[in-house]
Computed example of a mutant assay.
Amino acid sequence: MKNIILIGFMGVGKGSVAREVIKHSNYIAIDTDDLIESMENRKIKNIFEQDGEKYFRNIEHNISLWLEKSVKNTLISTGGGFYKVENLKKIGTIVLLDSPFDEIIKRIKAHPNATKKLKKRPLLNDMKKAKKLYDERRPEYLKLADIVVDVTNKSAKECTKEILKKVKK
């Protein structure tokens, strides 16, 4: 079993899908944002506010090196910008969870913890900037992806079935 790396825009459902994949496979799961928060002993929002995005991206780079060298048979759920690490293809099979921007925002706002979810994502504070970021990132995500799963109107369970079927091919 090779690592599976979930990429996609923030709020697309990478964490939900990851939790579902581990229920239905022999993979274990880790989340790059959770690793960063543990390493730094502070929330990502605070890292961005206190040290900036460049500092945060450097931590992601270091984590990517560790993942490549030390992690196997794992589902890796990534932050929205993690796809930029240079060694991503060496870490595992890249699965893009894809959805239109408006659907992602609708999904976040419909969540019972919507306020908390929006607060957790500092780059979503300004919807115009967030949409611009989505428009910049989406073609890059598509170019990198080994597998693309459209998550629009699908449950995490449906996405998981699709991922596991495509990864085994």
Rank of each mutant, 00 (worst) to 15 (best):
E49W: 07
I44H: 05
G52Q: 11
G52H: 11
K43D: 09
K69R: 13
K54A: 13
F56R: 14
E37G: 08
N62Y: 00
E60N: 00
H61Q: 07
M39D: 14
H61M: 03
N41S: 15
E60K: 00
D34K: 14
N58I: 09
L65E: 00
Q50W: 08
H61I: 02
E68V: 04
L65F: 00
E68C: 06
F56A: 09
I44Q: 05
W66Y: 14
F56W: 10
F56M: 13
N58A: 07
I59E: 03
I36Q: 02
E68Q: 15
H61G: 02
R42W: 04
K45S: 10
N46A: 13
K54C: 04
L65A: 00
G52K: 14
W66P: 01
N46V: 09
H61W: 02
I59T: 03
I63W: 01
E60C: 00
H61P: 01
G52T: 10
R42V: 08
D33W: 05
N41Q: 15
Y55T: 11
N62C: 01
E68I: 04
N62E: 02
S64F: 01
K54W: 03
N46Q: 14
E68T: 06
M39F: 10
I59C: 03
D33L: 07
E40I: 03
E40H: 05
I44W: 03
E68P: 05
R57N: 08
K45C: 07
E37C: 06
E49G: 04
N41P: 07
E53T: 08
D33G: 08
L35W: 09
S64P: 03
N41K: 15
Y55A: 08
D51T: 10
R57S: 06
H61D: 02
L67A: 02
L67R: 00
S38N: 09
I63P: 01
E37I: 05
I36M: 12
N46S: 15
R57V: 03
D33A: 07
N62F: 00
K45A: 06
I36D: 02
K54Q: 09
W66D: 03
S38C: 06
F56E: 13
